Simulated scan of single mutants.
Amino acid sequence: MEDYIVKWVASGVVFWATTFLLVRNLFPNRSFDFCNRIVSTIHASLAVSLASLSVQDWSCPACPLASESSPWQMKTLAVTLSYLIYDLICCLFDNHVSLDNSVHHLVSIVGIGAGLSYKMCGSEMVATLWITEISSPFLHARESLKELGIKDTDLNLVFDILFAVIFSLARMVGGPYLTYVTLTADNPLLIKAMAFGLQLVSAFWFYKIVRMVRYKMGKRITPKRIVTRELKARK
């Protein structure tokens, strides 16, 4: 791995940790998780922007396949790698560790680290970064609204639906395609394994999201049916 990339990753970890401390200072009455989600939203917005600027050919965003990474792609991936390292450590401090999220972080860290070490697969990896982060702001918004007391409201439902739709399209439409082209291209075995692992995690999360949407819609529909029955009974 290039020395300048190592420096970018190290300084990035410091940057994200400092950003968290600043947010924590601005919102002293909010939870650790709430402050961390603000940092995560900043990263997601930055990652999508940098990934978009890193695309070399918008007619084929993942092209050229299995090619040497450009300096801009390397720096973009270094920013996200530093964030993932920070966030994994941050979750340990919060005592809020989930197995699926930890696996996602470890797979992503190993995958991006491998890509930076090989100095290749930049096109595929920034496309993956775009796909995986595009739904993140909506995820963090829906969770943050709960702490703000805006739960089981129309606004909260809007963010639930937006997150579910964007996640499903990105991870279960774009994701499988990107996994396929990564597996079939002349990429190192480790990167292929990490691409497949990330898609498995996405599929598991998709299953959980479907259950969440069914539960939320069920809670909405059931009271309306009860009210309708009561009105009919009165008549």
Rank of each mutant, 00 (worst) to 15 (best):
F34M: 06
F34N: 05
C35Q: 03
C35D: 07
N36R: 08
N36S: 15
R37Y: 08
R37A: 02
R37I: 03
R37C: 12
R37V: 03
R37P: 10
I38K: 04
V39E: 01
V39R: 09
I42P: 04
I42W: 10
H43L: 10
L46I: 12
L46K: 04
A47R: 04
A47N: 05
V48C: 12
S49M: 15
L50N: 03
L50K: 04
L50E: 07
A51K: 01
L53N: 08
S54P: 01
S54M: 04
V55C: 02
V55M: 01
Q56W: 13
Q56E: 14
Q56T: 08
Q56R: 14
D57Q: 11
W58I: 15
C60R: 12
C60S: 15
P61E: 15
P61M: 12
P61T: 15
A62V: 08
C63I: 11
C63M: 13
P64R: 06
L65P: 09
L65F: 07
L65D: 09
L65T: 12
A66V: 00
A66R: 03
E68T: 11
E68G: 10
S69F: 02
S69H: 10
S70E: 13
S70Y: 00
S70K: 09
P71W: 01
W72R: 10
W72D: 00
Q73C: 02
